[in-house]
Structures are given as C-alpha cells and as structure tokens.
Nucleic acid binder design. Sequence first.
DNA 1: CGTAGATAGTTCGGACCCGAACGATCTCAA
DNA 2: TTGAGATCGTTCGGGTCCGAACTATCTACG
Lengths: 163, 163
Amino acid sequence: MPGQHTLDETESQVATRLAGMNLDFEAMAVTANLFRAANAARNHMERTVLAKSNLTWTAFVVLWVAWIWETAETREIASEAGVSKATLSGVLTTLEGRGFVERKRGQKDGRLVTVELTASGKRLMKKLFPEFNKAERHVVRDLTSTEQLVAADTLRRITQAAN
Amino acid sequence: MPGQHTLDETESQVATRLAGMNLDFEAMAVTANLFRAANAARNHMERTVLAKSNLTWTAFVVLWVAWIWETAETREIASEAGVSKATLSGVLTTLEGRGFVERKRGQKDGRLVTVELTASGKRLMKKLFPEFNKAERHVVRDLTSTEQLVAADTLRRITQAAN
DNA sequence: CGTAGATAGTTCGGACCCGAACGATCTCAA
DNA sequence: TTGAGATCGTTCGGGTCCGAACTATCTACG
C-alpha cells in the first residue's frame, strides 16, 4: 500500500540506522517479529471471529480460560490470561453484564472469587471456538506440521525465559 | 506458585477438555504460545526497561518507529506500530505533552501529519534502546543463533499469512 | 485469644485501544 | 470549474490496561 513500508524495508532501515551501535540484531529480529506476528494474528482473529460477537480479545481469552477449567478462581484466570487482577475485574464486569459468566465468593475462603460460564456463555464458546480455531489454522497455513511443532516449542522457551 | 497452573497443565487440560471437537491442536499450540510469548516478553520489557522512563509499551514502539525513520507520517507510524490512527492520535498527544515528539501538518498535503523526535526524545531513545536490546537478548537467551534466525523467519511468515 | 502480616478482589485515575462519525483536504472525472 | 468520492487525522464513547490504595479475609505467632 502506498505510503507504508514493507517489513523488509523496515528491517533494512533498522540495520542502516543503528549500525554504529553495539546491538544484538538477531535478538531484535526475533522480538520485533514476535510482536508483529502476535499483533497481526490477534487483529485477524478479532476481525474475522470475535467482532461479530462483539467480544474483545481479552474478553474472549478470559471466557476461554474459564471454559477450559469449568470452574476457575479469578487469580488463576488473571494469571493464565496474562492480565492483572485489576483488569480482570473490569473484564468480568463486562462479561457478567452480558450474561456470559457468573462470579461467586468462596465459601471456605472469603477472599476468593470463582467464575463459571453461564449456559449462554457455554453456548457461545461451543459455537465460537471452532471458528476461532479455523482462524488459528489460517494464520499458520504457510507452516508445515514440523515447523508448527518447532515454533510452539521455541515460543514456550521464550515465555519461560521472559518470566 | 500455588493456585496457578503450569503451561503443561493448561495444555493437557485443553487436550482433555476439547478432545471430542474436531480441532487443529497444532495450530492452537502455535497461536496460544505466540500470545503467551509476546505477552511475557512485553511484560519483561515494561518491567525492566520502560517503567523507569514511565513509558508504556505502545508509547515506546511509536517513539522507536519515529526514531528509526527520522521523519515519519502518522499513517505510516500507526501501520508499523500496529495500532489504529485513533489510538496513535492519543499516544502522540501523550508523547507530545512530555516533550518527546513534535507533530507538523504537511505543507504539500494538508491531510498529513509528520512526526519528529525532539532533542529530548532522541536522547531518551539513544539511552533507552541499548537497554531495551539487552532485555531483548534476555528473552531469547535460551535459543541458539540458528534457532533465532529460524524463529524470526517463521514469525514473519505468520505475520504475512495473518495480513 | 489477639494482632501483625499476607493475600484476594475492587475501585480509582490515567493511559491505551478501536470503530464510527466528523471536519478538512486532495484527486479526478464530467 | 465543480462536485463526488477518497483519504487523513481527530474526537467520542465504550472497553481494556495497570499500579496504587483500599476493604475484606485468612494465617500464624506470641
């Protein structure tokens, strides 16, 4: 598209512009492309799958985590969704308002809140997730099966190193 | 940490929970780990490098794009930073308020706005970017040089497929 | 038994995120 | 020359994002 730089142009400009500095260009390429790929994939999912249900990315992830574990505590959901407890509070308020989840105070430990999907929420995930998975397949369609396994493993190790 | 599931536990639960559905688990593993890795890496950078300059992730990326190209139009910056023009407007307002960038209306085309770093902004990037790059090295420290090259290439192809 | 310290979730303020709508500007065809 | 259509950036409303502060609850030690 006119006015925009291709990925190659950008990486070329970076190499030229920062040549004098003592930098690790390989590390830079990995992380820059990690964020680009995550961003592009997320935008694709939001555009093709989530928009029609008026779900944000994080709202979907939170629903997914609660769906996967059937009953989950908010501190667990926040951790697995990769958001703070403050953020999760707000997202759950939105999802609860739309009737997709229910929050319950723990009986044994009054500090804890557990979250369950409502019947409406379960129907939504059962319908939405196969479409989401189709979009996931779309973004990895240029990779062979072996490349996908290698990529998943490499990404796990990046996550571990960053935590 | 107590109460939190490990990555292995989560992936195991996913396999168990969704076994009956006709899903592509390899694609799922790639995208799930893509978002986890990006999120973990971003949190690491924000904690270790950006927090002390009171910069958000996106504010830093916007500064970086404008720094790399020396003079850039807002539509280009938005595209390369992966945010909408609406979002960029707000981020630039913040950065301009802090004295890091300057906006200028195009003389030839009154629709366009170009962005340049101020002297203060340039000093900040010159100081900050080597630290940022060190954090980048940290998150890929468990990968060999070859693995980094392969990873960067795989991620580029995911970005292309998603766009 | 009482209190200090820790943990959990919520609220607040400020920053980001985006689609839609708007005003301003540009281009091109009639 | 004019007007329709396109493009650009900003504003708005609603949602997200998080650290800090707060309230509530739990645990362990003296």
